[in-house]
Computed example of a mutant assay.
Amino acid sequence: MDRMPGWIRQHLAALRALLVLTAVTGIIYPLAATGVAQAVFNGNANGSLIEKDGKTVGSALVGQNFTDADGNPARQYFQSRPSAAGDGYDLTSTSASNLGPEDVLDTLAVPGATDEEGNPEEGQQSLLTQVCARSRAVGEREGVSGTRPFCTADGVGAVLKVFPAVGTATRAVSVNQACPAAPFIAAYEGVKVECGTPGEDYSAGRTVPIRGQAVAVVPADAVTASASGLDPHISVAYAELQAPRVARERGLDLATVTALIERHTTGRGLGFMGEPAVNVLELNLALDQG
């Protein structure tokens, strides 16, 4: 061995180090960590899975949609918040929309236009219009007002493009309301407001969101997705908004449903972080158990 060339000894030492580190970090440590997790946190380590009648129906850590055979929200169940993960709560596509508060302008679909695959062009909704449309839908489902600030009555962002960008207005366009829709306000600074023409370039104008007089009844988490797109919880306010519908659809007393909400409400983290929240899957399973 002493007569072995130096470069061979170096390679053998490197190989021994590789094998030892592979065994320690790739086999021994993972097995030890897994063993401790299974012994101490068995349920959590296995994904906090929830079973019903011996069948896994979901996880306490991952939200899901509650829909009927046609894909519409099932009226007898509490509904989760929106999700931007794939088609909704897709574990393989966990993500947020990456849209921010400045995203207020829609791309209106041009009638007769098609995309690269030959499908009819659908345009693109801004975050503001998505929020407005969701709020309107929730309001209709729950029998309350779905209006909110910066939203039109028909559920799009209440945004004008004003020309010129600087100085006295000579033209104003409700850019998120495609013609022949009636603009949500008749005039702005003495100028008649026009509906938006699909395909027209309004980029030179000044963007002016209009707050209006509406007061939001629908909670924020009912109209916005979480950062992961997998949040299993909703706010207590959103749960209480849905309670009358669920009670009515199931023929239950509202007090019974409210008590179930309270039973499945978790407090703030460490007593001070965040807000109390309701796990939707656990609440719906409790409803099914009667």
Rank of each mutant, 00 (worst) to 15 (best):
L241S: 08
A14H: 05
P198E: 12
G58E: 02
T67I: 12
K192M: 06
A204K: 13
A84P: 12
G271C: 10
I8A: 14
E122V: 10
R268T: 14
A239E: 07
V218A: 08
V166Q: 15
L287E: 05
P183N: 12
M273P: 00
T147C: 00
V24D: 03
C179G: 09
V62N: 11
V138P: 04
A186T: 11
H233S: 06
F163P: 07
R134T: 02
E189R: 15
G139C: 05
D154K: 07
V162F: 03
H233R: 13
K192E: 15
N46E: 13
A45C: 00
Y77D: 11
Y77K: 14
G54S: 04
T25S: 14
T25Y: 15
A96G: 15
W7A: 09
D87F: 08
D103H: 06
A178I: 00
P30T: 04
Q242G: 00
V36E: 10
E142Y: 02
G146K: 04
T114V: 13
K192N: 13
Q125H: 02
A13F: 08
C195W: 04
A182R: 13
T107N: 07
A214F: 11
L15W: 09
D253Y: 08
R141L: 11
Y77S: 12
E122M: 09
M4Q: 13
R134A: 10
R134N: 15
A247E: 01
T92G: 05
L270R: 11
D253S: 15
S83N: 03
A214M: 05
A220C: 00
R3H: 11
V208H: 07
V110G: 04
I8E: 11
A32P: 01
V138M: 09
